[in-house]
Design a protein around this nucleic acid. Structure first.
Lengths: 335, 335
DNA sequence: CTGTTAGCGCATTCAG
DNA sequence: CTGAATGCGCTAACAG
């Protein structure tokens, strides 16, 4: 493995000049630069990231932190987001660390990742609202941004879509289709998004003049299984709801299965909606009406925010993007 | 940010002793150790990963390389695998770098990740058979292991499940159900797994005494869309196949949608099978009969292999695990 | 435009 | 059991 010294010797310059060439400093004579470049190529020289990081105190790595592992399986949406993040960040020369939290496991402590200088900053995906981790990060002055969530500890950078508006759009869509008895299935209520969607359900009901009935609400955990169970519960209510709003697509997927088993037809007997517009939503039978979240925009906004934070910037605190209703075939007009 | 020096001063020892404590060296008097530990806690000292890596030439990072980005969306299976890998490796104190390849992009060159010493080794997920990258890695003497695939350049470490056997099991299952006219949908043929499954289809047909008909074979690319198209093509063949074997679950998902649209019933009119047993396979309508791949075992085998390779070991070259048939409701007995 | 002198924070010798 | 010297490969600040 060649070092700057080796390159310097071969090019008959000091290693400082090599460093300048590598870092694209302007002050290098053109022909010297070319001589160095040639030596670099001949020796297959690659700068050592650790040595550089030791000096600059920048690793050019970003940590992406997921909720706990089991959770990830229920939420392909977040994985898709993660891939987009990798794409955005890699374009700017950054690499991604993947981490999921495992409570009580020191090795998974995200703060540690920063303190040990393995990463320059953190992107937290859908953390729990009251996650103590977040406050610790803020106190430790660690650059971080939250994607799909926010914290009680007020002022942290975040990127999200407008969940309240999105949920309201769905409800109004159902309302216009003639639905007046609308069930709701929450996600994991430790997450802000789950809460916001639920609250929006309540307030939009009020706007539409529909009384709230706690019997029409179930709490899931975003998983297919929980959607399956929730559907079975809600479909037995008397009188039966004419529509059910699921807080994400996965749960709606479970509902489709449950409906089939109990010989309830969607949308003939009951309408359902999802949220997220995962890749598969367009292929279910019936195809799922859902809210599309602009993954790529969320990712590139998050990328910009974290980079700004790392650079010490105090730019935008939060970015809120708009979801978009995708009407497919899981709802029908009634009454 | 406290350094070893600061800790040393506070504990009234040399920084060398601090280093020993941090690295759990045996030769430290118990009470000295405790004094140092106390100082570490009081100063919130964390060892600097870059500095350590510079010395030891070990980063304790592993790079996980995906096929190109768009691809990942079609294959949730690999994501699930990635999560398991993170789990396995993090238990051993390693962190994961996430990378997907983007051809021609220097910043995404996996080799570079190693040469710059950002990672100690690489795990390649389902690379193309003739990926020139692999040969370069081998030549550069980079520790790496391939998961779900292998290379023409013979001797590299790999972990996979027995795809030939798995496919044979499916075919035989269908045969015993009475099927004699069985279609096949390939995955992306640049991958070894796609090829092996296809070849196994051919040879198993022969074993069962069924003539091969190229009309009954379609080539997809693992995606839902390609499965959708393949189904539409195969279902029009005369006489129509009584069963279609899909090389992965995603494509079978597309088929379910296509069947619905063309009013062909599964399994009454035609039987289908998938491969992988993704989380969702149990919830489709009808639930999908498929081959389960033991993700967690694959992941921990890969973790062990790469760690062995990094340590300079020459242990097992390859690990082949057994898939398992999951019979659900997408096939029926005929004839 | 180029080279020299310092250290980044730590671990690896080798002495005591 | 502990400490002192040395260098990992690189960049920053200053000279020339």
């Amino acid at each position: 493995m060649a070092s700057q010294q080796d390159v310097a010797a071969r090019a008959h310059v000091s290693f400082m000049t090599v460093s300048r060439v590598v870092n694209n400093h302007p002050n290098v004579k053109k022909e010297t630069r070319e001589r160095v470049l040639a030596a670099i190529r001949e020796l297959a020289y690659y700068p050592d990231a650790s040595a550089r990081a030791l000096n600059t105190r920048k690793t050019e790595n970003i940590g992406v932190i997921f909720p706990r592992k089991e959770y990830v399986f229920s939420r392909p949406f977040f994985i898709e987001l993660c891939i987009e993040l990798e794409d955005s960040l890699s374009r700017r020369g950054y690499h991604l660390f993947l981490g999921s939290t495992r409570t009580g496991d020191e090795y998974r402590d995200p703060t540690r990742l920063v303190k040990e200088r393995k990463v320059d900053g953190l992107i937290l995906i859908a953390p729990a609202v009251s996650d103590p981790e977040i406050e610790r990060l803020a106190e430790a002055n660690v650059p971080f941004v939250i994607v799909h969530g926010s914290s009680d500890a007020a002022d942290c950078a975040y990127v999200d879509t407008d969940n309240a508006a999105g949920t309201a759009v769905i409800l109004r869509y159902l309302f216009e289709l003639g639905h007046r008895r609308i069930g709701f299935v929450c996600g994991n209520m430790s997450e802000i998004n789950a809460r916001v969607r639920y609250e929006s359900y309540g307030s939009e009901l009020k706007v539409m003049g529909i009384p709230f009935e706690s019997d029409l609400v179930c709490t899931g955990d975003w998983s297919i299984e929980s959607g399956y169970e929730a559907f079975r519960t809600l479909v037995r209510r008397e009188p039966r709801p004419t529509a059910i709003v699921f807080s994400n697509d996965q749960m709606a997927l479970g509902a489709i299965r449950a409906a089939y088993e109990s010989k309830v037809r969607i949308p003939e007997d009951i309408s359902i909606t999802g949220y997220d517009d995962i890749k598969y939503a367009a292929f279910t039978v019936p195809a799922l009406t859902t809210m599309r979240q602009p993954l790529d925009e969320v990712a590139s906004a998050a990328a910009e925010l974290i980079l700004d934070r790392i650079a010490g910037g105090e730019g935008a605190r939060g970015v809120v993007l708009s979801p978009e209703l995708k009407v497919r075939s899981s709802c029908r007009r009634i009454g």
